[in-house]
């Protein structure tokens, strides 16, 4: 129920997950600022994946796209 609610709350542009719904990262853009994880409604430490250029593989991820939306450096995107 809570997850459904959170998906409604996420911004329109990224509320619809693209690709396979997983969040990929370009590690060379990441400055480890932590804005991503701060905005994650599920409390996932997205920075730990982003800085290493890894796709977020945490089971809690609901593909809301908040982290992609808020990243100031264009590090995160939907995995295609």
């Amino acid at each position: 129920m809570k997850q459904w609610f959170i998906k409604l709350w996420a911004k329109d542009e990224t509320a619809t997950a693209a690709g396979n719904g997983r969040v990929a990262a370009d590690g060379t853009r990441c400055v480890q600022c932590g804005v991503c994880g701060y905005n994650c409604p599920m409390g996932i430490p997205v920075r730990d994946y982003a800085r290493q250029g890894l796709t977020v593989s945490d089971d809690r991820c609901i593909s809301c796209g908040q982290c992609i939306e808020v990243c100031p450096r264009g590090t995160l995107r939907w995995e295609s």
């Binding site: 400055v31 480890q32 600022c33 932590g34 804005v35 701060y38 800085r51 100031p72």
Partner: peptide, 21 residues
């Protein structure tokens, strides 16, 4: 900690401790 992240602390988008990486 992330020095580039200090910009987002200054704007208030994140609290200071959030830049600690």
């Amino acid at each position: 900690y992330s020095r580039p992240g200090l910009a987002y602390v200054a704007t208030g988008e994140i609290p200071p401790h959030q830049v600690i990486a």
